[in-house]
Nucleic acid binder design. Structure first.
Lengths: 353, 353
DNA sequence: TTGAAAGCGGTACCAC
DNA sequence: GTGGTACCGCTTTCAA
């Protein structure tokens, strides 16, 4: 538990100066330090188990190689941890470390979280949210290069790039999957519209019908909620006591938990899945969608990819020439979702196409 | 985006020296700096929007006020983020910041994660796991005060304190809840025994029966798995085609997802919950247990509390006199679980008690 | 090729 | 009370 070795210790042991140690260990030894010295330095460093003090390096270089991540409740929620995981993997691969501050959805803590991070001299910032949503970036976030993941600032002047899932396309491809299976009467169980994810998925859903030249039956888009019970009750409304010919043959849900509720309802009503009813989820929630009975066909959110893309962009910005400060690029990168076909969807029942 | 103000800037503006600024802003002004100067310094700091550079402070004080957290897959999993959240809340309240490195369950990355953290000069370390499990603490972890959360090192000489849930008691109280409702034939659906959580919960289960002077029917403890499908198939084995008098009247599951599977099966078999069958979960998984249909009675894991307790202990150790280094306290703190009664459990069906 | 020395932004000791 | 100054550990320039 004795103090860690410093560059000076290494220098002494190798019989050289600290400068030499620094040069060699940073790969700029050739042409500056004699070959023999280099070897001795390397050996000394190894025997002393020397690694540089990152704090001191940060202070000296005025770059901490720390990326601050502010999240609204990613850490405590079972959902989007993968965004952070994806981001962190990229950061780590480039010698960065991330420190995340979770505001637990208390927006009044945004600014102070960013301040704390700024005081720690983070080189860049990333704001991550659990669900897709618009927000006003904390002003002090603009002090360092920043990026938004799974959220966006819709004020055009904000100028912070965002990486978000292509929800419209996701909704469209989900519907298309079912249309191709012959379904014509498809219901959509949405969550509330507090997050723009729901309306966008619905938009895509309708787009698919329009492209197919088919109408969306009125009353088939139901705003229920996001949880199991909402799915259950929504499904009961759609199915319970309704004549077979008047039931939708497929239900697409705005997330996998809704889909669980729908399956629960179908089981209770004695409907076989997918023979009598096809069910789709959304999210491909870890260990939920794939282990359901039946396993859920779902639209996977590209969480890891989003995190990775956001971090890659951010780090890229950091290494660029810092001349072009005010080239306000308010990009918005759309990452496509991934259709995962499992057992809960199948051909439309005979006579209903 | 201009450079941040430094203590020197403040000193100049206030017409004093850096030392004075440091003293005042650290609350040791009285008795050292004239009242007027104090005011001027505070004003100057405010107008310049000065906050100290944490990196510089760390270097000088040789304490970074950073706690490193190594997790096996907490971040990406939907489970134990709350351990980290609880830990982080405590850390933040004392001016610490946490940086978590997720090894994504690759144990070979343990050492390097710890090294990275150590290079960053963390003041302490915490190791968190998703499921309760024994482990060998990475050796270099012993270089700074450390704590384990939801895991433990069973080598007596390890000497790293651990905070874990009281699983035995949890299993006992779950069984007791059902026994009190009159159930006598209770099945236990366990996960695999890779994690000691399962055997401990089973242990508690059997303890409760023994305390009640009742036998556990043979074949009623089933090792299934941890996911929805395992619950489904386990339940089918227990219930499908079995005479009513020979069916268990209650099933307690080793987690909430197993319970979902059991409900799914019950629904399919036309069994009403809790009238025909009581079902218990374990974990009180966020937005799962409380929104199931019916809402699940479950045993809540004290995740936040564990994280908070672990961090509190760790920070306490940091502020203690560092004289008593080798007082190898291999404590193990057991945090009790919390019974949450909802709708999925009820009195035993008539004639089965 | 090498080493001395100047900071990076603070803190804290020590004369005055 | 006050300001000068050494130092935390490292990088980098510059003179020898």
């Amino acid at each position: 538990m004795n103090r860690k070795a410093t560059a000076l210790d290494v220098a002494k042991l190798a019989g050289v100066s600290r400068s030499a140690v620094s040069l060699v260990l940073n790969g700029r030894g050739d042409g500056n330090v004699a070959k023999e010295s280099q070897v001795r330095i390397r050996e000394a460093a190894a025997t002393l188990n020397y690694t540089p003090n990152a704090i001191a390096v940060s202070l000296r270089n005025r770059r901490s190689r720390i990326i601050g991540i502010v999240s609204d409740q990613v850490v405590t929620s079972p959902f989007d941890g993968n965004i952070i995981a994806g981001a962190d993997a990229v950061a780590r691969s480039q010698g960065f470390v991330t420190v995340v501050m979770d505001t637990e959805s208390d927006e009044s803590r945004d600014e102070s979280a960013v301040s704390t991070l700024l005081d720690r001299q983070v080189d860049g910032l990333m704001y991550v949210t659990v669900g897709l949503r618009p927000l006003h970036v904390p002003l002090n976030m603009l002090r360092v290069p920043s990026v938004l993941a799974n959220c966006f600032d819709d004020r055009p002047e904000a100028g912070v790039p965002a990486v978000i899932p292509d929800e419209v396309r996701g909704g469209r491809e989900a519907a298309t999957h079912l249309l191709e299976l012959g379904h014509r009467d498809i219901a959509f169980l949405a969550g509330d519209s507090i997050t723009p994810a729901a309306p966008r998925r619905i938009q895509g859903h309708c787009d698919a019908f329009e492209a197919a030249g088919l109408p969306v039956r009125p009353g088939r888009i139901i705003q229920a909620g996001w949880d199991i019970d909402a799915g259950f009750h929504g499904a009961m409304k759609l199915l319970d006591g309704v004549a077979a010919a008047d039931r939708p043959t497929a239900i697409v849900c705005a997330n996998d938990r809704l889909a669980i509720g729908v399956v629960l309802a179908a089981n209770r009503l004695g409907l076989a899945i997918p023979q009598d009813l096809s069910i789709m989820g959304y999210d491909d929630e870890f260990r939920i969608a794939s282990t359901m009975v039946p396993a859920l066909t779902t639209m996977a959110l590209p969480l890891r990819e989003m995190g990775a893309a956001a971090m890659t962009g951010l780090l890229g910005e950091l290494s660029e020439e810092p001349e072009n400060d005010d080239s306000v690029r308010a990009d918005q990168t759309l990452v496509p979702c991934r259709l995962v076909v499992r057992e809960s969807t199948g051909p439309v029942p005979a006579g209903r196409n």
